[in-house]
Design a binder for these strands. Structure first.
Lengths: 210, 210
DNA sequence: TTTTTTCTCCGTCTCGAGACGGAGGAACTT
DNA sequence: AAGTTCCTCCGTCTCGAGACGGAGAAAAAA
């Protein structure tokens, strides 16, 4: 019997997944959780071999929970099942140690197959996600603003908020000349012509948080 | 018996919802669909009183499907059940004629209650969504850029792309002086200090499409 | 018809933006 | 000990941005 835990903040999704799994003779659903923190407790108590984990949850997200769980149970296979496949979600999850990555569009069979594969050490990666990973490894990883220094990044964030040099100077407690130096360096590193384009860049490439 | 149809591209979500509903004696699940187009066919065939509808789907989204269904079956109550409650999704759905709006975080009881309320003509609106609606009706509706003229909006879009005055002049086939006039008017109408802030505004307030 | 709005364009003027070159000090690497 | 990177700041110079005022033409509204 494969012990499986289901983590998702949507009750209907949990019930949906479980309603498959109970019909599978080799799979034993040992518990369900509706948040990252609940998931951690659940895993420590029931010690499942496989965890089906949603990423977006209210109280402690799936990425933190994944990290936490693997610290205590390194052999636990965590399968991410989520609605999204955007860069901001996928890669932190993989880095946190998620074993497989699936989308909620997956069918019952696919989920069951992923669980069986997981226990024998074989990961399943959603094709669309796999594509993103390839792109990331090719060129995406070297996003222009990755070779900005810490300070330049701060200045870029200010530019992205629409501040002028004087305001940035006050905000960061540095001279306006210094700000100009940073701005010039930023413009050449990002290969843009002026601060307006830098602001657009900042707002479109996740330099500005949230 | 209340005839209900379930529309969602995630099989696990459909099964999850249905697994509730079958335990309710007064509710009869007459069918399920995994896309907007399937949903339209399904409704025309089975004529349910209530449709549980996801918004984000591959083939024909929930908003279009809602519009289409209500054209043929004006008395059909469509309950949106989705993961998101952002402006871009909620308001088109309401405009399309959706009867209730719930989130997937809803519990089994809430869904069943929403269905019962729907058949007696009482809508259920998720509190978080209701808040957004209130905000929209208060100030959000009158977003500053709504009193920009057609031409000014075009110029603002160019600014939002990071163009300078010369480039905008070429792009729109007008003199650079004219561009300056438009820019000045835009800045005062949006109440921002310079084009950089205007660019940030454009990128954060949906002036730039997609 | 008169008025208002919108788009177009002009000149002038001020000021911030940005390029360019130089430089000192702190921290980390080799 | 020497080199590299980063942050800091200086002065100079050019140019585009934006404010301000004015104005003509066309179209829509009164």
């Amino acid at each position: 019997m494969i012990k499986v835990a289901v983590v998702d903040d949507h009750e209907m999704v949990r019930k949906g997944i479980i309603s498959y799994l109970v019909t599978e003779p080799e799979i034993d659903v040992v518990g369900e959780a509706k948040s990252g923190n609940e998931a951690i407790k659940l895993v420590l108590e029931t010690r499942p071999e496989v965890v089906l984990m949603d990423l977006l949850m209210e109280d402690g997200n799936g990425i933190e929970a994944t990290r936490e769980i693997l610290q205590h149970e390194p052999n636990c296979k965590i399968i991410i099942i989520t609605s999204f496949y955007d860069d901001e979600q996928v890669f932190p999850a993989i880095e946190a140690g998620a074993f497989s990555y699936m989308l909620k569009t997956a069918t019952a069979d696919e989920v069951v197959r992923a669980i069986r594969k997981a226990v024998v050490g074989e990961p399943i990666i959603e094709p669309k996600v796999a594509n993103r990973m390839m792109n990331r490894l090719r060129k995406q990883e070297k996003k222009p603003h990755h070779d900005l220094t810490e300070r330049e990044l701060e200045v870029l964030m200010c530019i992205g908020e629409g501040m002028n040099n004087q305001e940035i100077s006050t905000e960061l407690f540095i001279g306006i000349k210094t700000v100009k130096t940073h701005v010039s360096n930023i413009l050449s590193k990002l290969d843009v012509a002026d601060r307006t384009q830098a602001a657009v860049y900042a707002n479109r490439n996740g330099v500005i948080k949230k």
